[in-house]
Amino acid sequence: MKDKQMTKTIMGIAAPLPLANVDTDVIMPKRFLITITREGLGDGAFADLRFDNAGQLRPDFILNNAPWTRASILIVGDNFGCGSSREHAVWGMRQLGINACIGTGFAGIFYDNARKNGLALPIVSPATRDFLLQFSSDARGHEISIDLESRMITAGDISASFEMDDATQTGLIRGRDDTLDTLEHAGAIRDYEAGLNKEMRISVLK
């Protein structure tokens, strides 16, 4: 498979979501998980924050208010994405139009799921995060820009660097299929298996 179109820069309006420990139950409530497809999860993303019990938009939630209704970047609190491994959380955020979350640190499984789905998670210092929270709170809705190649975020006159490991950076830019890539190493996998004793191979009883 050829690489999809390269994504080197992510630009858009950012919304501040400063809560710490936003877990994947909050990002994608369980009632949206009873599905065998990846589709139709946009409505589920942050559903209990976006909608009240009657299904009406909650006016106190940032993404329900202009200009943040158009936000494609979130500035998030510490430990965003903690909890359950459900990749549905990332699928739903992508379907809601979110391309990046900027924070000081992310839960591990969420971080890996994000990479597989083109959701960029730049990691910044607390000072940069606090600045971006303030910058994105401005209702004039100035765009910010994330340059994946140079690992720099630009917001107004300010530029700041972010952390992202090399494999994630490469994966996001190329938008490649990891499984296909790995199968190019099928020989190495077979070599590894050839080195295993018979006592090191599980065979589950049916």
Partner: peptide, 13 residues
Amino acid sequence: GIGTSEVEHVLAT
């Protein structure tokens, strides 16, 4: 723990 894309990856590789 792994996500669903990684479940696919383990199944295939």
